[in-house]
Design a protein around this nucleic acid. Structure first.
Lengths: 243, 243
DNA sequence: GACGCATACATGTATAGACATCTCTATTAT
DNA sequence: ATAATAGAGATGTCTATACATGTATGCGTC
């Protein structure tokens, strides 16, 4: 009889969800195995069936479990996935690759928004945006040129912050209380111009991975537009797609 | 007073969800606007509050709505196209670009799985897999070389099907009853070898977008492993990321 | 006018139960 | 032996209710 902790103020469905997740990750529940029925789980945890269903529903959404109507709930076969569609800052990306992130600021200024930037950030053309351009390093080697645009009205004092000591624009934005939720990113191949080639230490016309991304807070407000040019020999890009 | 259709056997929460979705897409509910409270919606549709919450929860997951505890539920600012993380076949991708898909079969055979393929498809090395290699065309121009591997035991009669007339492997697999659910795709840059350069009509050593993808059915069984080499001047790649 | 507090109302969590629908199995009838 | 049927047990939908918790508002006090 597993008792849920009554002391801490964590919802029961969250506690059950995390217990199930742990059992799956530790192979107590093996891939393909049938879970106890919802009624059995409800009895076991001393909660109602609806609470169990809620816990299970989360894990089904994540792809850890699947249901078969009339038959039962089962552990899915593979789980390497989840983290792949996680929205990461370039800082976090490099950390994940096991390298030491570094940064070199190229420029930092307030500018009127061009029409393209205004459109992405839902501003009027000419509204002030903070333009922050830097070279991202991994283990001391240049890997990406990044250029971010943030509406100035969202964080008027951003310039005064020490952007050099703060390793990630995301950290800064989140510390301002923006709950970054999702982003749309478009990736394609472009060829290095002279300046980019020099900064990234590649040949002119070498292929680069070009990505542009708009990041949205949870209320759908665009917070950030980033363009990035990255060395094609360093980056790969893994995502999870759903049909 | 909107009545839900009692005749059709569609769950009420689905009906309410789709009505709300329609009102959002038609701007009856405008971005930023507050929805009626859950209790009001429940009265309006003559259902319980839990049923309304379920409908709303779906749309929150999709990013169309967001909630503020104690305040209300609101329409999000932008409708980021959900379609960006949709798992599409190459056929569907080209259709979406507004081009006419074509295909030229390069080879079709049953082979023992290499260790790499076996690992991706959760097979034993040497198990039979169907290897299907083709050139994908868009408006008659070659754009991708694709090479799919499917465990033979999943569809023993695949070879007899007329793969030439069926424009998409996905269609075929779904017609066999596989509920394709999600895929993990890794994308990077590689350089064209002699054969690839000739087929894709680019120079040798030209950069190509290399993608490998494992597709899973809803029970987590891997159904399909694809490698693709695509012309970098044709493809871009848009995804939605969440934090 | 500024502050604090009570209140109304919003969403968040949880319950116990009812009935529907789907699947599989065991029993019964042919 | 085979086919039809009944039943058990699983998930799917839905209700009505209770209480917890967060937020804005308006009122009274200072």
């Amino acid at each position: 009889m597993n008792l849920l902790s009554e002391i801490q103020d964590i919802p029961r469905y969250v506690q059950i969800r995390e217990r199930l997740r742990e059992q799956i990750s530790k192979h107590v529940l093996k891939p393909g195995q049938k879970l106890p029925s919802e009624n059995e789980l409800a009895k076991h945890y001393h909660v109602s069936r609806m609470t169990v269903r809620r816990a299970i529903a989360c894990l089904v959404d994540e792809g850890l479990l699947y249901r078969q109507h009339g038959t039962g709930t089962f552990v899915a076969q593979l789980r390497i996935e989840r983290d792949y569609t996680r929205l990461l800052s370039s800082y976090e990306q490099i950390l994940r690759m096991g390298l030491e992130p570094g940064m070199q600021i190229l420029s930092l200024e307030v500018r009127p928004a061009t029409s393209k930037v205004a459109q992405y950030l839902a501003l009027q053309e000419g509204d002030s945006v903070i333009r922050f351009e830097r070279l991202r390093l991994a283990d001391g080697q240049p890997v990406s040129i990044l250029c971010s645009y943030v509406p100035q009205k969202l964080c008027p004092q951003l310039l005064r912050e020490d952007l050099a000591s703060c390793q990630s624009l995301f950290q800064l934005l989140e510390s301002y209380g923006f709950r970054l939720k999702r982003a749309v990113q478009k990736t394609e191949i472009r060829w290095a111009d002279q300046v980019q080639a020099r900064l990234l230490e590649v040949k002119e016309q070498a292929p680069l991975i070009y990505a542009e991304r708009v990041t949205f807070a949870d209320d759908g407000t665009p917070v950030d537009y980033v363009e990035g040019w990255s060395r094609a020999d360093v980056f790969s890009f893994t995502v999870v797609l759903s049909r």
